[in-house]
Design a protein around this nucleic acid. Structure first.
Lengths: 242, 242
DNA sequence: CGGAGTGTCCCG
DNA sequence: CGGGACACTCCG
């Protein structure tokens, strides 16, 4: 168990009195400020951090194991429960017992050179669950009036790879890849059968859960024409308005 | 999350009163008895079960995340802490977040027939950690006078396979295998190099962490002679005593 | 380290 | 479901 860089955790055993033997836990921020309680920690970290799963005493986060709220006064906690995690802008991460980085077994199935290359460009500090999008199934984005914002449709060529992924899941997968990847986003190289047989090994976790699409020069042409058509319409419209 | 066969878990929401909205959790034993609290559960299961990591409310066990004792009166809990787990007669099990069976990815590396056969005879309800014996390193058995009971020595032919296993580790591994296995205990079939390269795949978890030993008819002969010699000595001794 | 405040547990 | 008996948290 390690803390974010610069932070320290101290455990002090009480030496005497009625509570002898009990321990007090303190944290120290990178600039040396002493933190004595969870509320204090929350005040310092600000709203952006969700500490509901963080156990101040042990220094670890536990997902969905200890329920315990201590939400100031307004007992509206039950209402917001389960939403808070999804509300954060972080991708869902593996649900094991440590907040911090954990070693993961690398299984080599392919030629050595390939797996090394993958490792090199692909280091993420938060390992994703393989089909993390499924955790978002059933949730819809709303605008401020609580109207559900309709989702997009995908061209038929875009074929998903994975266990019953919805259109939204595929979109989530693609947009996350576009957001995170430094390299090109091209979809899965391996065949659907191979991937579904053993996703944890054969899935390329850097790529969205779609089959690679062949883009022909015809496709590019059609798209160019569409763009030109749209521009033309816009121009016409602007002229009519002036 | 599922319960052991025959057990049921029920969650009842309080409908009215000051505590409206709170829930009560009940368990039902296979014979239908209703369990209303953790102490009651402990009384029914008896000493052999270590419930210290079991969260009655959620029905899950969490290892080393929630500390919480509620140990009747004698507050000697701090003293016993950390010992309790090792003291139970259960093999160390994987330290992930559920007491009950979890799906595990099966990686097929060998011919299909072999891995199927392995699965068939090898189903354990508690998956062992691969080198679970290492958790016992540094612990020695004592007699009631707190004298350390000396360990055995192993014949040189018995070669361990694993990361720096002590003689005790090897003995633990062998005796656990003899205790648990229904079939013959023969040691690891794969070569030491192959196993150490990727233990989680190549280790036979049904077998102790030793290389397979070839027992020649010479060995058997020698052993027979040793037994006869011992019997002879015993007979002689008894005759001298009479 | 004490102790008020607050939460949970367990059983009637 | 209420409520006494804890246990833990947080701050002086």
């Amino acid at each position: 168990m390690s803390l974010p860089p610069g932070w320290k955790r101290e455990e002090v055993v009480r030496q005497s009195g009625l509570s002898a033997g009990k321990t007090d836990v303190y944290y120290f921020t990178p600039d040396g400020k002493k933190i004595r309680s969870k509320p204090q920690l929350a005040r310092i970290l600000g709203e952006a951090f969700d500490l509901s799963a963080f156990d101040f005493r042990t220094g670890r986060t536990v997902y969905s194991a200890c329920r315990k709220s201590k939400r100031q006064k307004g007992s509206s906690y039950d209402f917001a429960r389960g939403v808070r995690h999804d509300a954060s802008l972080v991708l869902p991460i593996r649900q094991t017992a440590s907040i911090f980085k954990q070693p993961v077994t690398v299984i080599k199935n392919r030629s050595e050179s390939k797996s090394k290359a993958e490792l090199k460009h692909g280091i993420q500090d938060q390992p994703k669950q393989i089909f993390w999008e499924k955790r978002l199934q059933g949730l819809r984005a709303c605008d401020s009036n609580e109207e559900v914002i309709p989702s997009m449709e995908l061209p038929k060529q875009v074929q998903s790879i994975g266990p019953e992924l919805t259109t939204e899941n595929v979109l989530q997968s693609i947009s996350a890849a576009l957001h995170i990847n430094t390299g090109p986003v091209v979809g899965q190289g391996a065949s659907k059968q191979v991937i579904l047989k053993n996703p944890s090994i054969n899935m390329d976790t850097q790529q969205p859960h779609i089959q690679q699409i062949l883009v022909s020069s015809d496709d590019i042409h059609r798209q160019e024409q569409r763009v030109q058509l749209a521009r033309q319409k816009l121009q016409d419209l602007i002229q009519t308005l002036e």
